[in-house]
């Protein structure tokens, strides 16, 4: 029995170690490649390089328009997130705090809009953007990004607000606080983890969006980061070193979020998805 248990433990450790390795190794290799010269990248004997260089990063940051792409992505992701969060905090609070006819139906309807295949929206948007003359603009992109961000944030905020202990608001009101004071002093602080998690998710989805950006953005000065990365892939040759350096830089905000708010993100994700 004891031997069997030990054997089982070994199997589990090996399995878990393999899972962790396969999760990290691809990314470590990207990092490693971003620090190689182009001849090292093609050299089988330099899988683990004998010397490192920052040449690719310098190339990406100073020669390519990467900072512009980075800035555009930040603008689009932040604007979309702020607009959607304001709308959905209001809606979430309104739906939980008051009796609004049809809110449950509304919520289920929103769920369906969350699941649309985006190609179904890409077609009409192609026509709409041309008519509104918003084709090659960040504003147009922000509008489109709201189409998948907003249903998600409304759903999540409503779920978070419903899980809050509303008795505390009542107690605050009995103690003489106005409803507005109670909202800002009691309810919003309690909802903060949910608000942060939802906001970060929304930022991350916008940061990662590729299809719409690829369809609507054509000028270099308006490209977002997911498009900008592609510029290192040529038709005949690819600048792998720069591509990998760009990849690493594009991951910086995501890594920061993950390190700072991992528990929050993970908890927020499962809470928002399993409760109706």
């Amino acid at each position: 029995m004891k031997v069997k248990r030990k054997a089982m433990n070994v199997v589990i450790y090996v399995f878990v170690a393999l899972v962790s390795l396969s999760a990290i190794v691809p990314l470590l290799y990207v990092l490693l490649t971003s620090l190689k010269t182009s001849s090292q990248i093609y050299d089988v004997n330099q899988i683990v390089p004998t010397s490192l260089t920052l040449e690719n990063y310098i190339n990406v940051l100073y020669k390519a328009k990467f900072l512009t792409y980075f800035r555009n992505s930040v603008i689009v992701a932040v604007c979309t997130t702020v607009v959607c969060m304001i709308l959905s905090i209001c809606a979430g609070y309104g739906m939980t705090r008051y009796r609004v006819r049809g809110s449950q139906k509304l919520k289920m309807g929103i769920l369906y809009t969350r699941m649309f295949p985006s190609v179904l929206l890409a077609l009409p948007y192609y026509v709409i953007m041309r008519n509104l003359d918003l084709g090659d603009s960040l504003l147009g992109l922000i509008l489109i990004y709201c189409s998948f961000t907003l249903p998600f944030t409304i759903w999540n905020m409503q779920t978070f607000f419903r899980q809050l202990p509303w008795e505390l608001e009542e107690a605050a009101c009995i103690d003489g606080a106005s409803r507005t004071t109670a909202l800002f002093r009691v309810i919003l602080p309690m909802a903060r983890p949910g608000i942060i998690a939802t906001g970060l998710f929304s930022f991350m989805t916008c940061w990662d969006e590729y299809m719409y950006a690829n369809l609507f953005i054509s000028s270099t000065s308006k490209k977002t980061i997911s498009l900008g990365i592609q510029s290192f892939i040529g038709e005949y040759s690819t600048d792998w070193g720069s591509l990998m350096a760009a990849t690493v830089i594009a991951m910086v905000p995501i890594i920061i979020f993950f390190v700072v708010a991992q528990k929050n993100l993970v908890g927020g994700l499962s809470a928002g998805a399993v409760k109706g």
């Binding site: 209001c90 309104g94 008051y98």
Partner: peptide, 25 residues
């Protein structure tokens, strides 16, 4: 007040999601 809070989100959802979807269909 509740309706006032919910309505903007509904209008926004209609404009960015539902209307384009109906158009797409």
């Amino acid at each position: 007040r509740g309706y006032l809070l919910v309505v903007p989100a509904c209008i926004a959802i209609f404009l960015v999601s539902i209307y384009p979807m109906l158009y797409g269909i």
